[in-house]
Amino acid sequence: MEKLLCTWFGAGQMRPAPGTWASVVAVALGVLIHWVGHFPLLLVATLAVTLAGFWAVPRYTKGMEDPDRSEIVIDEVAGQWLALCFPSFGFWYAGLDATNFPYPGWLAALIFFRLFDIWKPWIIGRADRRGGVRGVMYDDLLAGLFAGIAVMIAAAFSHLVLM
């Protein structure tokens, strides 16, 4: 069970760049979750996958020299869904229909999340260097937080300045 969760049902086995593949899978699932239950369901799913990651990663990596293995991608799913929560909330708050999740929102969340997850600026890098099983989850959650904020800044710029 821990391996299935940590590899997100095999997405972590995809090559090359399993983290990117997992992020793409996470976005597709996240948009589907948004369509089914809008922001509240996406938020609950994000919290659930985050808790599952903090539970599964230590169990799966027990005894491994390096717990931050490339096939472990539940952290990408949690971080990517956190990033998606920002535009999802905006659409929900604006009263838009749940099936209305335009591509700029989810595409920007994907791009910004991958950017922050790979670049690892500031506290994201510190969380990654912390190492250990908690570091596996923390850096991606911080990347998701930064990505979500970046999506909202980009949306504000787009709507207020470009239009």
Rank of each mutant, 00 (worst) to 15 (best):
F116V: 08
A150T: 11
T61C: 13
K3T: 00
F112I: 12
E71I: 03
L162K: 02
S158L: 09
G63F: 00
T99V: 12
A56P: 11
V77G: 02
F91G: 00
V36G: 08
T46Q: 08
E76I: 12
L142E: 01
G30F: 01
V151I: 12
P87I: 10
W119T: 13
W106M: 08
R134C: 10
P104M: 09
P87D: 08
A147Q: 08
W8V: 02
R126V: 07
C6H: 06
S88Q: 03
Y93W: 13
F54N: 07
V77N: 01
I123G: 03
G95K: 05
V77D: 02
L141H: 07
T7Y: 08
D117P: 11
K120F: 04
I118H: 03
L160D: 08
F39Y: 10
L96V: 09
R59F: 08
W92E: 05
F54M: 06
D140F: 12
F89W: 15
G105F: 06
R126E: 12
D140M: 13
G79W: 06
R134E: 15
G105S: 05
A56C: 14
L162C: 05
A78S: 08
I153R: 13
W35L: 07
W35G: 01
K120Y: 05
W122S: 15
R134G: 14
P87G: 06
L51K: 00
V57A: 05
I118C: 02
C6D: 08
R129T: 14
W55T: 01
P67E: 13
I33T: 14
A78Y: 03
S70F: 10
R59Q: 14
L162P: 01
A28D: 05
W8N: 00
L29G: 03
H34P: 03
R15T: 11
Y60E: 11
R114Q: 12
L84G: 05
V36Q: 11
Q80P: 04
I118G: 02
I111Y: 06
G105L: 04
P67R: 12
A11D: 04
L82W: 06
T99K: 14
E65Q: 11
A108M: 14
